[in-house]
């Protein structure tokens, strides 16, 4: 399924060469295992026993590890997140032609990698961050398939957005540390760094995805 946006398409990208090679390797492994066990007396000799161990223990673990690694990497992609209908408007919000829209400005100016845009901002930059993000992903699946998912404009984060995710990139950056607005009040930056004042609080960078009002904004056509 592909979602068309002005001048750009988010879709699950065609399979990459490593994925194709991995699928071929898995298929080859399956055939090899099938041929081996179909031979009568295959494990009678010492060599047969070693081969059986390699084929029935080592090879499946190797395939599972490589497959899981590939799936985990793919689950970080923007296309993966936007492949759910509920996320369609959030993907569209990345193309709003207004630098005041936080998510759009980050996406369009490559402040986050466009291919991993969702994951870059919505993962925890803390210990076990990726693991926690995947658990939240499971929660998304539960909500999507087993309950009535809310309308896109009613979707809220499970927990308030932590400034840590912003500071992972912005802390120490000159534009952030020496920004006029950030330094107008000497208490502001320490409060932001301590997560006492949210970066996306009212009056600051409050417009993030704003999916409820996407019908009132202009869209960027994307890089050509």
């Amino acid at each position: 399924m592909r979602f068309a946006f002005p001048g750009f398409q988010f879709g699950l990208s065609p399979m990459t060469l490593p994925t194709i090679l991995l699928i071929l390797f898995i298929a080859f492994s399956a055939i090899l295992i099938g041929l081996f066990v179909s031979r009568p007396g295959a494990t009678v000799t010492r060599g047969g026993k070693i081969t059986a161990f390699l084929l029935l223990f080592f090879l499946p673990i190797l395939c599972a590890t490589m497959g899981l690694s590939s799936e985990l990497e793919r689950s970080k992609s923007t296309a993966f997140c936007l492949s759910c209908h509920t996320m369609e408007l959030f993907g569209r919000s990345l193309y709003v032609d207004d630098p005041g829209h936080l998510a759009a400005a980050h996406f369009q100016n490559h402040r986050v990698p466009p291919d991993n845009a969702c994951y870059t901002c919505h993962s925890d930059y803390a210990m076990f961050g990726t693991f926690k993000t995947k658990l939240r992903g499971l929660q998304h699946v539960y909500v999507y398939y087993l309950t009535k998912p809310p309308a896109p404009e009613n979707i809220k984060l499970y927990t308030p957005f932590n400034n840590r995710e912003c500071l992972h990139c912005h802390a120490g950056a000159r534009s952030f540390e020496e920004g006029a607005v950030h330094n107008a009040d000497p208490d502001l930056l320490p409060a932001v760094k301590a997560n006492k004042i949210s970066c996306i609080s009212s009056g600051c960078h409050e417009v993030v995805h704003n999916v409820a009002q996407l019908n009132q904004v202009k869209f960027w056509n994307g890089a050509h």
Binding site: L12, M15, T19, A27, A30, P60, G67, S70, S83, V141
Partner: peptide, 16 residues
């Protein structure tokens, strides 16, 4: 292995 191969081709959140 076959299920894994199909999931790698399918490439959807449910496939994961």
């Amino acid at each position: 292995l076959l299920v894994e191969a199909v999931c790698l081709v399918w490439a959807r959140p449910l496939a994961f």
